[in-house]
Design a binder for these strands. Structure first.
Length: 711
DNA sequence: GCAAGGTC
């Protein structure tokens, strides 16, 4: 009897094998591990998927629209997924033809589909008839054993629901994206990569909405009345923002010549609880706040740390640390590193983590495993240290923040100021990433009279709502239930890649706005959360057997067909507008030669981007860009051209490399050196200008200015 | 080429 257990990912196959058959033989086929266990005449093989092994593709790639889809190995569709082939081959080789199968992927819709497809296409359809299902929510030994001893049936509602999700996303996303690109092609015969989707488009719409709020914002002036009392004390009027100038004047007059009488001094202790353990979103937020890392970068690093065994599974939404992870042992191991040891020594038992609200059935919060890394890159070390310090501080004692609040009266006008200091550091000592307030408390008590140096009105303006950054946008997506913890960072990266958005404080480009405008006209649903909500309702109904998968898909096809035909009717107009917005998005400044627009261009021949005049070929102004450079919004003070940032660490410079330099420092390339092939540079020497090789002193070729070799 | 969702 041959039994096969199929798992979702390598890590869980290792745990499942270890829990059920501690003596099983770990085997390798290429880089991929699997387990074999023999018990009398029963042989058990444990194999693993690596997430989705199969992906959708159109059955006929030459059709105009893609409604007829098929599952194919993901490595055939996506060249970057080559590593999946080895896993699938292990399944094909060692799992096909078994007598019994156990589907042991995560117990959720995607997990059920991953196992189903692996069995159906990797082991053959007959495998499905011999399959039972393990249901577990955590990968603890006890729960794995219990799930193995009490198998259930595969939930085909989940399978259909999962497949429908993939198909619906493809039908909406790919077809609408293609029609947008087609419109540009029809109008201009050019290709620009454009896209729309159930998650990315509402995300862009959120940003566009904020962009419009900022644009339409009318700042209103207001005043804050401040009194300077000496010794660095500045008190503010308790009225807060005052919008009437006359009121400001009358208050200032009232305060004239009076001392400040201290009405009340209150010192209070407030407790600051330790932070909660990291789920992926909070780790991404914190790494952005502390190091400025993009969420995608943090996610990649966390994935590496996990793969190396230093930290736990990163794609979790849990802020809980169950006791079963073994607090003591992890801390004991971490303490071997004195940098962590000093903090761990301070912890007092019994160990109890301060947990957050969010839960995840499949994984605990992100935590160090206790295995100390030997070699980490600079950035990996930053993230690792952050995770370790967070983990330790979660067990720390409460900190105490002391607040002093002083109420004053100056000529019957009420003022106040406050001071803060941490009086007991507690966990804050182990978490060097938060600010510890340490303000002086002045010696003041009720009834005192203080001299007033000056009372003045500070004029300010109301500010528009802040722009999102990547971290705050991820939080917003989470709040709205758009995307998943694993995909949000990628979705945002995609919006940057399409040039829909730009900057750390995210601005929407004209192209991004036009995409939303166009889709609002032709397919408003895809620009809002409505589509996600509709999917959720439909997938729920499929799961419960209230509606068939095929009916939901047929209805979606009808809907998308109608959207596509609406777009088709105005194809050229849509394309013209999109292309114009695309051009506007690339404008970085004004051409100093002809007054036209400088735009970012791409040279396929050199495979590089550069800045050139949009009036080419009439105007041939060009500026090369260093590799990886980005053009900034700020302008050079000397010449008015845009600034660029480039290199590592990032440096800023004018787009024009000659700007601000003396003539002698400017390298003017006039040709190629016939001896070594380097650039020939115009130089000025004692006897006037001459041309020399850039490779000097290695290559000593020189010639006069009018002798420059051709080519 | 195009989506969104798993994962190394």
């Amino acid at each position: 009897m041959h039994e096969v257990i199929i798992c979702e990912k390598p890590k869980s196959s290792e745990k499942i094998a270890g829990a059920l058959f501690p003596d099983a033989m770990k085997k390798k086929h290429g880089k991929v591990s699997y387990w074999e266990h023999v018990e009398g005449d029963k042989r058990v093989t444990i194999v693993s998927a690596v997430g989705h092994l199969y992906s959708l593709r159109p059955r006929q790639s030459n059709e105009e629209h893609f409604f007829d889809l098929e599952w194919a190995p993901i490595y055939e569709i996506d060249k970057k997924k080559g590593y999946v082939k080895d896993y699938l081959n292990v399944i094909r080789k060692f799992a096909a033809g078994a007598d019994r199968y156990i589907h042991a992927c995560d117990y959720d819709i995607e997990g059920t589909l991953i196992g189903f497809n692996a069995l159906k296409y990797g082991c053959g359809e007959e495998a499905l008839r011999k399959t039972s299902r393990m249901k577990f929510s955590t990968l603890t030994r006890e729960e794995i054993k219990r799930a193995y001893q009490n198998p259930i049936e595969v939930d085909y509602g989940q399978v259909d629901s999962g497949a429908a999700r993939h198909i619906l996303d493809f039908i909406f996303g790919v077809n609408i994206s293609r029609s947008l690109m087609k419109s540009v092609k029809a109008a201009t015969n050019r290709f620009i990569k454009l896209s729309a989707g159930r998650v990315q488009t509402p995300t862009l719409a959120i940003l566009v909405e904020r962009e419009k709020e900022i644009r339409d914002f009318k700042p209103v002036p207001y005043w804050i009345i401040r009194a300077e009392l000496g010794e660095g004390i500045i008190a503010e009027s308790k009225r807060g923002k005052i919008f009437k100038r006359e009121l400001v004047d009358s208050i200032l007059e009232k305060c004239q010549g009076s001392d400040a009488e201290v009405k009340d001094v209150r010192v209070r202790d407030t407790i600051r609880k330790p932070p909660v353990p990291f789920d992926l979103g909070t780790l991404q937020s914190e790494a952005y706040r502390v190091f400025g890392f993009s969420p995608k970068k943090t996610q990649t690093i966390a994935q590496n740390l996990y793969t190396e065994g230093y930290t736990s599974y990163p794609r979790t939404s849990s802020q809980k640390l169950p006791e079963s992870i073994g607090y003591e042992k992890i801390l004991k191991n971490l303490a071997k590193n004195p940098r962590f040891g000093v903090h761990i020594e301070r912890l007092r038992g019994p160990l109890k983590p301060h947990e957050g609200k969010k839960e995840d059935d499949a994984h605990p919060a992100i935590h160090p495993t206790g295995l100390l890394p030997s070699e980490l890159s600079k950035d990996e070390k930053k993230v690792y240290d952050l995770i370790v310090h967070r983990f330790i501080s979660v067990f720390g004692e409460d900190a105490i923040l002391q607040t002093m609040k002083v109420e004053l009266e100056i000529g019957e006008e009420e003022f106040s100021f406050s001071r803060k200091r941490v009086s007991k550091a507690g966990w804050m000592e182990s978490y060097p990433y938060t600010k510890m307030e340490d303000e002086e408390f002045p010696e003041i008590s009720g009834g005192d009279s203080l001299a007033v140096r000056s009372v003045s009105a500070d004029e300010r303006e109301t500010k528009p709502p802040a722009r999102y950054n990547e971290a705050s946008l991820i939080r917003e997506l989470e709040r709205r239930g758009l995307g998943t913890k694993s995909t949000r960072a990628d979705i945002i990266a995609k919006l940057y890649d399409r040039k829909y958005i730009e900057g750390k404080k995210i601005r929407v480009s004209p192209l991004g706005e036009n995409i939303i405008d166009t889709l609002t006209r032709y397919c408003e649903k895809i620009t809002s959360e409505e589509l996600t909500r509709q999917f959720e309702r439909e997938l729920e109904d499929i799961m419960r057997g209230k509606i068939s998968k095929d009916r939901v898909i047929d209805e979606a096809i009808t809907e998308v067909r109608s959207i596509l035909s609406d777009i088709e009717e105005n194809l050229r107009d849509i394309g013209k507008e999109l292309y114009r917005a695309y051009q506007d998005s690339r404008v970085v400044g004004e051409c100093p030669a002809c007054g036209g627009k400088l735009v970012i261009k791409y040279s396929p021949r050199n495979r590089s981007t550069f800045v050139g005049c949009s009036s080419y070929p009439d105007c041939r102004t060009v500026y090369s860009l260093p590799k990886g450079a980005s053009v900034l919004k700020s302008l050079c003070e000397k010449c008015g051209l845009p600034m660029i940032s480039y290199g590592r660490p990032r440096q800023r410079a004018c787009l024009d490399p000659k700007c601000g330099k003396k003539k002698s420092e400017v390298e003017e390339v006039v040709g190629k050196c016939p001896e070594c092939g380097s650039d020939l540079i115009k130089r000025s020497g004692r006897y006037g200008e001459f041309v020399g090789c850039k490779g000097f002193p290695k290559c000593r070729f020189t010639c006069s200015v009018d002798e420059v070799p051709e080519g």
